[in-house]
Structure formats: C-alpha cells, structure tokens
C-alpha cells in the first residue's frame, strides 16, 4: 500500500536493508545500510524485523508527504527531522497521519539518518535484498536514488507500541574525531616500517571524496616498499586501501568486490559504524588491535542488539 510521496529527495536518499550477500563471487557489491546499528534499531522500534528496508537519508533535503496513518522511527544522524512545523523526536516510534509532511532540513550531527516505517519499505527484492546499488542499477527503486514524485509502499505492519523510546544509554553520540580500530593486513608487508608507523600514528581528515563506496582520507602519505599494485583480490568491508599516492581510502558498503591496490588494514565492524556517520572534514586515527579483541567488541555489539530485542518483546 502506498505510504509516502516524495516531494523533495535531497541529494541522496536510497532504500537500504542489511545488504546483499552471496553474490560477491559474481561481482555484485554488498551495499546495504552504511550504519547498520541505526537501521536495525529503527526497525525494532516500529515493530519490524531488524533487517527490513528503510530509507537512508544523506545529510539533508528529504521531504515526504504521508499518504496513510502509520508509525515511523528516525534514527542515526540528527538531520533536524520535522513533522509539519514541529520537530520530530528521534530514536522513538512516532505516529504520523495522512497529509503530514516529514522533512529533514539541515544536518546537526552525523551524516546518515534512517527512517523506518511499520511494515518496512516495500520494493521488489533483487538477489534476496532491497538494498540499492546505484552504480550497478540494482535494488531499491529501479536501482536509483529517490526522485521527486516517487511513491513508496510499505509492507504488512505488525502490532507496535507508540511512543516506544530507545533508552538514552543506547543512543550513540557521533563525534567529529574518531578512533578507528584496525586489524593489520592482508598486505601490511608491502609497506615499510616507517609507512606502518605513519599509518598508525597520524591523524587523517576525511576528504570531500567520501561516499557510500569509500572515504578518501587526507594526511601523511603511507610509504610502500616497492609499489602499490597487487594482483587483484577480494575487498572486505572496512578495508584500508593505499594506492600509489600513499593516501588511504577506507572501502565501505558500496565498494567494488575486487581491486588491485594494496590494503594495509581493515577497520573492525563496529568502528565502520562511526565512519558511516563521519563527514568530510572530520578527523580519524587508526589503532591496531588483534582479531580476538575485535571479536570481543563484535560480540558486545550483537549482545546490545539482542538486549534491545528482548526489551521490545517484553514491552508488548
């Protein structure tokens, strides 16, 4: 059933879920929400399964007209969401009525906001996922970002509790300076000792070349032993690729499946979330940790989601 009409799409609003898995062997990128915590929480708040399709709104500009009474939750970046002329509370299930306007006029904190609607955004699944990958014209709304005049449908809503609000200790605070924990490799042996030292001890600035595919960073150049080219291999989420110019690129949700440049390290899963909310001009530093430590952080993160799910089930 049609639930929203797009009045203004903003620079980049796409339909995303948790991503498209199993097809990277055919060259199909994973895509999916850049900040999967915000997407999962938004869904849980409106009574959806954690992985339903949501709108991912980049920085500002989206304006929707509500076509039917429903429940929404907005999480992630604070883009000053408004319901008609008053501000719309975030991290909370909110009822919206037919004829209302939801808008995101300007960014206050963070980079990407998520709007979940009861029943999820209903688009045809492509290779098992609703996520949009704009470059290969797959998923979402005809494989493209939202346009003015688009109509969005929602799926079957489940019973939900209005005013359900995320306990404040679970609302993340987005910083302009982040520490990104990394596991070195796969090609850390292609760099000089000096190069690894530069990478781990310098501050980098997110450049304007920062999108869903990856963030180019500016800062001290990382020295290779003898060139930046490798025989192309696979690229994991969070891979820190260093091409010939020595400046790192962190590869994110829409990354290409394979590439031919050295990768010095990989940002751990839970810290990719910090990067998803970082903007050009923000600063990052890299900190080396072990695989075992990273798994401990990942388990803590999943435990948090599990706790929230239980809390939501009990509050019914």
């Amino acid at each position: 059933m049609e639930i929203f009409e797009v009045i203004q799409p903003g620079p980049l609003t796409t339909v995303q879920d948790l991503g498209r898995y199993g097809y990277q062997q055919y060259g199909v990128p994973v895509s999916g929400a850049m900040d999967n915590y915000a997407l999962r929480v938004a869904n849980l708040l409106v009574g959806n399964n954690e992985g339903e399709a949501c709108l991912e709104i980049t920085l500002l500009g989206l304006q929707l007209r509500v076509l039917k009474d429903t429940v929404v939750a907005i999480t992630g970046a604070d883009l000053s969401p408004m319901l008609n002329k008053s501000s719309l509370p975030m991290w909370e299930a909110v009822i919206v009525g037919r004829g209302d306007t939801i808008s995101f006029p300007w960014p206050k904190r963070g980079c990407r906001s998520y709007l979940a609607v009861a029943g999820g955004i209903d688009v045809p699944k492509v290779m098992g996922s609703s996520s949009t990958h704009v470059k290969s014209h797959i998923g979402g709304l005809e494989g493209r970002p939202l346009c003015a005049g688009d109509y969005l449908k929602s799926g079957q809503a489940r019973p939900t509790i209005l005013g359900r609000r995320l306990p404040p200790q679970y609302v993340p605070e987005y910083q302009n300076q982040s520490e990104l924990r990394v596991i070195l490799g796969p090609q850390d042996d292609y760099f000089t000792e000096e190069g690894i030292h530069t990478f781990l001890c310098s501050e980098y600035t997110i450049s304007i070349k920062a999108d869903r595919m990856g963030y180019r960073l500016e800062g001290p150049r990382i020295e290779h032993k003898a060139g930046a080219d490798i025989i192309s291999d696979g690229i994991p989420l969070g891979a820190v690729q260093v091409p010939g110019d020595g400046l790192p690129i962190v590869l994110l949700a829409d990354r290409q499946t394979t590439g031919g440049y050295t990768k010095v390290a990989t940002v751990i899963t839970v810290d990719v979330l910090k990067l998803a909310q970082a903007k050009p001009g923000d600063k990052v530093r890299f900190l080396q940790i072990t695989e075992g430590e990273a798994h401990r952080f990942l388990k803590e993160y999943e435990q948090t989601i599990y706790t929230l799910k239980r809390w939501i089930r009990q509050s019914h």
Partner: peptide, 18 residues
Amino acid sequence: FLAGGDKAFFIEFGNAVA
C-alpha cells in the same frame, strides 16, 4: 592465510597470474 578484518580472511595460493 591473511587477515581481512574481523569477519573475513584470505586464503592465498601464490603470487602470480597463472
């Protein structure tokens, strides 16, 4: 076996196109 973060690793058989 080469590291690829906390959810992936590489299994590499050589260093050539062959």
